[in-house]
Simulated assay, not measured.
Amino acid sequence: MLTVVPGTWSPDDVPLVHIWQSCSGGAEDTDSCTDVTLGGATAIGETFTISTELEGQRIRVRESALSGDEDDPEATDQFSELTGVVAPAPIPQVVVPGFLGEPRSIAFQQLAALGLTVTLEEVGQSGECDPRVEVQDPSAGAQVDVGSSVRISTGRPRPFFECGFPFPPIFDGGVFLDLDDLDDPIIGDFRLPERLINP
């Protein structure tokens, strides 16, 4: 946030207006300066919060002293020096949780919630429908940029025919069907709800 230090005027109670400007040129180039607009309105005030849209720009403030008729005042301007170039905002970081021994679905969900992506490696057969995480990189407790990738390694899952079958919503509301929990008839390798077989 930038804050104005008002200039010295005579009389010292002259009304002042502060308008913020962004400048695309170098430190000595003030011809490129234009008023900053926020939501379609000019940025006016004694403080100014720099937004990401101004990255690569320099900032200054125009201080206008108003005199004469209130309805049509005359403005005398002076300008602050230019700031340095506005740097990109730092990328936020998060701490990587530990997933070793956890089902990989938990790892997928938690990493997505943190804004991280997953690189999955499957090595060997796990014998499980939701294989456990055997390796993760970076390890638990590491700080990484949001958007980074975390590599996890698990065994290959059992065939989905053995673990349940996600029916389309038009058939079963998108509910995941588990072979161990259903008593409906089996057709081929798939277990179907009784109501779909005998409507």
Rank of each mutant, 00 (worst) to 15 (best):
E81V: 07
L196C: 04
I106N: 04
D69E: 12
F108C: 06
T47A: 03
P73I: 09
P15W: 02
F108P: 04
I186D: 04
T8C: 07
D29P: 11
E28L: 15
T117S: 15
T83M: 01
I170V: 12
F171W: 13
G7L: 06
V95L: 14
L179K: 10
Q57E: 15
V94P: 14
V96T: 11
S149Q: 14
L100M: 13
P157V: 07
S10I: 14
A107T: 06
G45P: 05
P168Y: 01
D178P: 00
F99N: 04
S64R: 14
P15S: 08
E70S: 15
E162A: 14
R132W: 00
I170K: 09
Q136E: 11
V175G: 03
G174S: 07
F167P: 08
S64G: 11
I59M: 08
P73V: 05
L196P: 01
G98M: 07
V146C: 14
A140S: 10
E53R: 05
I187Y: 07
L192R: 00
A75T: 07
S126E: 03
G84I: 02
L182P: 02
V85A: 14
P73H: 12
P103A: 13
P168W: 03
A75F: 01
P199N: 12
Q93I: 04
A113M: 06
T30I: 09
P159M: 10
D71L: 15
P138W: 02
G98P: 07
Q109Y: 11
V95S: 15
V135Q: 10
P169C: 07
V146A: 12
I187N: 07
V36H: 01
L192D: 01
P166W: 02
G56Q: 02
S126M: 06
D71S: 15
D137C: 00
I187R: 11
V85H: 02
D130M: 05
D181M: 10
T49Q: 14
D172F: 15
G147D: 08
F108W: 07
E74P: 00
S24K: 12
